Simulated scan of single mutants.
Amino acid sequence: MPSAPQTSQPSLQVISLGGTIAMTLPSGGAGGVAPRLTAADLVGAVPGLDDGVCLEAQDFRHIPGAWLDIDDIAALAELLNKQAASGTDGIVITQGTDTLEETAYLLDLLYEGAAPVVVTGAMRNPSMAGADGPANLLAAVRTAAAPQARGLGVLVVFSDEIHAARHVQKVHSTSTSAFASPGAGPIGHVVEGRPRFHFSLPRRPAVPLPFTRPAAVEVIETTLGSSGTLLHCAEQHLDGLVIAAFGAGHVPASWTERLEELAARIPVVLTSRTGAGSVLTATYTFTGSETYLLERGLINAGTLHPRKARLLLLAHLRTGADRNTLKAAFESQS
């Protein structure tokens, strides 16, 4: 009797950047935790992680999440593009949670492949009771191996929830359920070890790599009674600016003259500081309203969070994009 045909196992990469998931106490147990575990250590610590898949572990960085920078993530995106082109079936990235929402979104902007990329980490380091890293890593591997995840871009898997990089935010400093997608919700859940997807988001064309020029972009947030002093430093030091405005896109009247001057010189993007909901386009007309500011050259970021608007603007500026390209990029994201 002929044997049943053999099916090949999905080939997955697990890439470590460091972070809490890889942090342990020094030998002797005295002092605080720091990144010490390798990608191979993380993979080896989860029973059954390689069931049904072929895993390869790789260390890319070995640092806290707060140390990562734009060039680290651009270099990682180039690696992911090469691996996807070479035929890998999925990629899992482990890193620190401080910057996880931002690295996931920047990777989503730069990643060209169809193979799933899943970012995860931990809120409790391996020396703590109830460490969540192993469960998050297992859920991330299962998601990256799922055919349904193909073509969805970069995902974040945390506490058995699957989030789109476009919407995910870190919403708590210590909880193991620290990640959420305000205004959208998770796009799926991992149930009994199997990812179940509820909906998906359309992919946008990737921002081309490599970056060809330096650029500086910062976020300035409106606050009650703020004089806007930081705006006076922007033109000398920045190539672009994101305003995290009140409500649906409003700023103090005292800010408006300076913002109009800046928008004539550098791209200035209007976002909401609320963390969910959209900047409006034509509801309010008072001085400093969304209508007033958009008429004076600010770029509407729609529903995009200020931190992610900064990354979208920065990525395009570093490719040398012109103003029309920038406006189109924000229209497509929002």
Rank of each mutant, 00 (worst) to 15 (best):
I243L: 14
N324W: 00
W67F: 14
W67I: 09
I63P: 05
P35H: 02
V251E: 02
M1Y: 04
D89G: 06
A45D: 09
L109H: 02
D72W: 00
P252N: 07
D51K: 11
R150L: 11
P306A: 09
S11A: 11
A104I: 05
G153Q: 08
V43C: 05
L270W: 14
G240Y: 02
G19N: 03
P147M: 08
D160L: 13
S254I: 15
S181A: 14
L238C: 04
A215T: 00
V154N: 00
V157M: 01
P208D: 15
L79P: 00
G151H: 12
A264V: 11
N324M: 08
T285Q: 05
F60N: 12
Y111I: 06
N136M: 09
A234S: 15
L230S: 11
A309P: 01
D72H: 15
A184K: 05
V157C: 13
V190M: 08
T274K: 01
G44Y: 05
E56P: 04
R318S: 12
P182Q: 08
S227M: 09
E161G: 12
A263I: 09
A164F: 13
S3I: 15
Q236M: 14
I70V: 15
F330C: 02
I220S: 04
H232C: 00
F158W: 07
R296G: 14
E290T: 04
Y292N: 05
T319P: 11
V157A: 10
H172N: 13
L230K: 03
K308I: 04
A264E: 14
P306E: 12
Q83G: 09
F246T: 08
A115L: 05
L201A: 14
T212V: 05
A215Q: 02
L312I: 03
F286S: 00
E290C: 03
P195V: 01
T285R: 06
H167N: 09
R204M: 11
R203D: 11
D322A: 07
D51A: 11
G302W: 00
E112D: 06
M1E: 07
T88N: 12
L224T: 11
G188I: 03
L224K: 06
A84F: 03
A22H: 04
P134L: 03
M123Q: 07
T99S: 14
